[in-house]
Design a protein around this nucleic acid. Structure first.
Length: 378
DNA sequence: AACAGACGCAACCGCCGAACA
DNA sequence: TTGTTCGGCGGTTGCGTCTGT
């Protein structure tokens, strides 16, 4: 059974493409497109190449909408920020740099950015400073874990978004824009310039809102961990987000959406309450603001947020210059790491990144800015 | 000028999940 | 349900170019 047998594995050409081959491939795709089967394309186009090779050549080189040449500073920053969030998920990163190919971004990362970060004393894999981590292992572990899960959320969202955009493109092909416009739902954003409609279902908006509110101040619930996650949460005080009834399946269910927004707003309010609660906050010599875990526990209790018991709460990184808030990071004027030990004993988690605050803020701001652009909540 | 090593990038390889029969 | 193919992805390689000695 199964599909009909694959290619005859006849002597297919390998190695660099010649201008003639490029011309053949271009001519064929311009005339017929490539949607259908890359597998069958080479024979039809008169090429002695496998379909995979043709696909790569088209995607990485011949596609007309590719921007080539040096990466701008903005592009570099975007790549670094997204890599911190997504890791080596080049295809996901590429969705934010649509005129660049994943191969190009990957190459640029490996040949330029990785080395640059290393020179700056930042581990290009973890995006953490390469200082001794023993002193603040717990705080950093928590922070890394939180960021990792934020990344997983974001990654999932980007993938879903890319998929929906692809689907939208297909719809756009089959439906002229004037007709398609009538199919818009609340989450879809028409592009005036292109007429293209980016699909952004409300479930993603809510997810974004939820994620922004929750991940900014809590750890991500164990329930929401990706099965592929390699990070573990040994603590028992994780916030059980699933208790709040959030479920991706609520698309189209207005009451559930409203409920979710309500919870999101509740948590946002709680966040502000904590940050404004002066007597619970302290500043260190470097000016970084700290607040005590007990403060949040109390506030969560007082605000009676469903599903948030005192024991459910874990404080994690809350960052971003835009909001004028700093989480409980310890400031240090040196990069040697020796003085950056944790201060867990007094109840505050020390995240050992103050010297790279701007770096991390830029990463988190990327998410915040994205939310501001897309979300009705932020 | 010649050489070696570093660098940059196009292309290939191998794996995985989805689609298909 | 199962076996096979295909498309897509990330990792890696190979080779041409650049740079320093």
């Amino acid at each position: 059974m199964g599909r009909s047998p694959c290619c005859e594995k006849v002597a297919l050409k390998k190695g660099p493409w010649t201008p003639e081959e490029d011309q053949k491939l271009l001519a064929y795709i311009e005339q017929h497109g490539h949607i259908g089967s890359w597998r069958a394309l080479p024979a039809k186009a008169g090429l002695q190449r496998c379909g995979k090779s043709c696909r790569l050549r088209w995607i990485n080189y011949l596609r007309p909408d590719i921007k080539r040449g040096k990466f701008s500073l903005q592009e570099e920053q975007t790549i670094i920020q997204l890599h911190a969030l997504l890791g080596n998920r080049w295809s996901a990163i590429t969705t934010h740099l649509p005129k660049r190919t994943d191969n190009e971004i990957k190459n640029y990362w490996n040949t330029h950015l990785k080395k640059r970060l290393t020179k700056m004393g930042i581990d290009p894999v973890t995006h953490k400073p390469k200082t001794n981590a023993l002193g603040s292992a717990i705080g950093q572990t928590r922070d890394a874990a939180n960021l990792s899960h934020m990344a997983q959320w974001e990654s999932t969202r980007i993938e879903a978004e890319a998929r929906l955009v692809r689907e939208s493109k297909v719809l756009l092909v089959t439906n002229p824009p004037s007709q398609y416009h009538h199919q818009l739902s609340g989450g879809q954003i028409p592009n005036k310039a292109t007429g293209f409609v980016a699909s952004r279902p409300q479930c993603l908006e809510v997810l974004k809102a939820w994620q922004g509110a929750v991940s900014g101040m809590f750890g991500i619930a164990r329930d929401l961990e990706s099965p592929t996650s390699t990070l573990n949460f040994p603590e028992n005080n994780m916030l059980a987000i699933s208790n709040l009834g959030f479920n991706e399946n609520f698309v189209g269910n207005n009451s559930l959406q409203a409920s979710c927004f309500e919870k999101s707003n509740q948590i946002q309010g709680l966040k502000e309450k904590i940050i404004l609660d002066d007597h619970e906050m302290t500043t260190d010599q470097g000016g970084a603001i700290w607040f005590q875990e007990s403060s949040f526990r109390t506030s969560a209790h007082e605000n009676n947020i469903e599903g948030l018991s005192e024991d459910d709460v874990m404080l994690v990184c809350e960052s971003g210059d835009g909001g004028g808030h700093h989480h409980q990071q310890q400031s240090s004027s040196s990069m040697d790491g020796e003085d950056q030990n944790s201060d867990i004993n007094n109840g505050a988690y020390n995240v050992n990144f103050e010297d790279n605050k701007n770096y991390w803020n830029s990463i988190l701001n990327l998410l915040v800015n994205a939310s501001a652009t897309w979300s009705p909540v932020f």
